[in-house]
Design a protein around this nucleic acid. Structure first.
Lengths: 156, 156
DNA sequence: CCAAGATATTTTAAGCTTAAAATTTCAGCC
DNA sequence: GGCTGAAATTTTAAGCTTAAAATATCTTGG
């Protein structure tokens, strides 16, 4: 049987590499589509996607923690989206340090369009997965995620 | 039932986002470990890992296509690994354009150490997955990968 | 009030990434 | 031999990313 700890560890490593390959392949395809068909990038899409979930906008720091990227990172991306009038910065009454980033109506319209295409691309790329596959995969990922959540608590 | 095409598409999108979250979480942990415990980075590890599979080394272009990154990218990474004497560039007899990058003995030793720790980190991070989970997941990913392989053929 | 520490954000420096341009060398053909 | 296009690599320009430093503002305790 292939169930000693040694082979389990090797099997986990092989699956990890395959997982990475699949995710990188799909992500690459999304990036290509965003670039070639919509003249934008994944980080910009991610920021717009986050802001679309919060119609009243998000403080810069909340946006960066939601996206799990650094503060300085969102500063740069929001700068550019703001230049293009897809996002606007709104001062927070009573706190001159903070700013709220929110989609403009132009930004909302642009995001709706992107989001529809994005869902279609994913649908095609994951075409091989049935509803049953998705449920199994979702459960599996859930267990992996709760593992990393434990790790985060340990680090904090 | 939840099996109309609409909900299948939404389910695929949700699973994709969860997949991304899991993979990014694990990858982030690997990057942190490489940085904090070994003063190195994932791209450097990836290059060394590729070279470790080919004891005779790889041409720069073969290295970049193996890793699926641009030529210019590996140039920069190999430059730095070379400065640290972990990698060396060897001229190709009969073709003055080409160079072969290969691990030095110092590089090999360094990589062995990293690879052992790397396998341990993955083992811990995927601790929740049994051999059976791994087999199911591997099959699922295989189907996703063959989908993207078809796509690549279509593009070429 | 005000000093000191905390908080929100931006700036900076360094590294990774890509596509495209530039450079060097090769291979084939006349 | 020499020209032309292909091939291997590096360079360049632009964007993303982070951690750490810098700035500005707020809050709290004295």
């Amino acid at each position: 049987m292939t169930s000693d700890p040694e082979s389990l560890s090797k099997a986990r490593l092989r699956v990890w590499l395959k997982l990475l390959k699949a995710v990188n392949g799909i992500e690459g395809e999304i990036r290509r589509n965003l670039r070639d068909r919509h003249r934008t990038t994944l980080p910009r899409f991610d920021v717009m996607s986050a802001l679309a979930r919060f119609p009243d906008g998000l403080k810069m720091s909340d946006l960066s923690s939601f996206l799990k990227v650094s503060n300085g990172n969102v500063t740069g991306i929001v700068d550019k989206l703001t230049e293009e009038e897809l996002v606007q910065r709104v001062p927070v009454p009573g706190d001159k340090r903070a700013q709220i980033a929110r989609l403009t109506s132009k930004g909302k319209a642009e995001f709706e369009k992107l989001a529809g295409h994005h869902e279609g691309w994913i649908d095609t790329l994951l075409d091989a997965l049935s509803m049953e596959d998705l449920e199994t995969l979702s459960d599996t990922l859930e267990r992996v995620l709760s593992q990393s959540t434990e790790k985060e608590r340990a680090d904090a």
